[in-house]
Design a protein around this nucleic acid. Structure first.
Length: 274
DNA sequence: CGACAATGAAAAA
DNA sequence: TTTTCCTTGTCGC
């Protein structure tokens, strides 16, 4: 269940469970077997996240010599933490860390690979600023947005432009700012970008805290409006994501959906008109 | 650009 | 049994 907030939360959780320890490292499914053997019972000293990329720092804390495990969940990679005793691992578990107080299983990731510090730097270099990283520079993202004719909804999904935003946050943040998802990036004003970025920082931080995405303002919550809470396996309260053909919480109009940048886009044509 | 493949699991049909 | 999914690299036109 991967959008930037999930990955940052995972970095926190991996660190809380294993930082400063030397867990058993195995790859029951096999694809990561050689690397796992190399890292088995070595120090896990840190966990880092940039956008949807997760990095576990093993063996040597010296930044020039750290062994990094690079993880990308892709569309349906999953991570499951548990307390010992760990069950016999199913053969879909790509990576298992197991210590005295916790174990964690990784299944179905697009990427799980041992990389060098130089390779890690290269990954950071090709990613745009991440609203969840304190060093992020929103102006660097806007510089790309303002010279592109691509729809803003596609730019928000482009990890080179801004890292960590996925299909939920893009739809929701555009709704919250009443921006037509098809508006070209070059027509986004500096003030609008500033507001979008600030909002993403807040929404995604809350996403990390709660481990789910909620975007509905207090005045539009189910309690405030006397409607039943959302029934959806994604959990959070949202305005438009996966609400095709349902009434808009604000204007009552019908939420629409369409393909954009290879994903399903959701928006309210009445509220999001330029 | 669009199509497609790659990983798993769970819901929908 | 098929579809769907909070992703993204690659390949073809």
């Amino acid at each position: 269940m991967p959008e930037g907030h999930t990955i940052h939360r995972l970095a926190q959780d991996y660190a809380a469970a294993f930082a400063g320890t030397a867990p058993r490292v195995t790859s029951p499914q096999g694809k990561f077997g050689d690397a796992a053997a190399l890292l088995d019972r070595t120090l896990l000293h840190t966990a880092d996240a940039h956008g949807k990329h997760l990095f576990l720092g093993f063996r040597d804390p010296d930044p020039d010599h750290t062994d990094w495990v690079h993880i990308h969940l892709g569309l349906f990679g999953k991570v499951a933490f548990g307390t010992p005793p760990a069950p016999p691992p199913a053969d879909t578990v790509r990576l298992r860390l197991a210590g005295d107080t916790a174990y964690v299983d990784l299944r179905g990731p697009t990427t799980c690979a041992l990389i060098t510090p130089a390779e890690k730097r290269a990954i950071h270099a090709r990613l745009g600023p991440d609203p969840l990283r304190p060093d992020a520079d929103p102006d660097a993202a806007y510089a790309r947005v303002r010279r592109s004719r691509t729809p803003v909804a596609a730019l928000l999904m482009d990890q080179k432009v801004i890292a960590g935003v996925g299909n939920v946050y893009r739809a929701e943040v555009l709704f919250r700012h009443r921006i037509d998802p098809y508006r070209p990036g070059r027509d986004i004003t500096p003030a609008e970008w500033d507001a979008l970025w600030t909002d993403l920082v807040e929404l995604m931080r809350e996403g990390v805290r709660n481990n789910r995405i909620d975007t509905v303002r207090p005045e539009h919550t189910p309690e405030a409006m006397g409607r039943p809470p959302r029934v959806d396996d994604h959990g959070g309260e949202v305005y438009v994501y996966r609400r095709a053909n349902l009434p808009c919480h604000v204007c009552g109009g019908e939420i629409r959906t369409a393909g954009l940048a290879a994903r399903n886009l959701f928006w309210c044509p009445d509220c999001q008109k330029d």
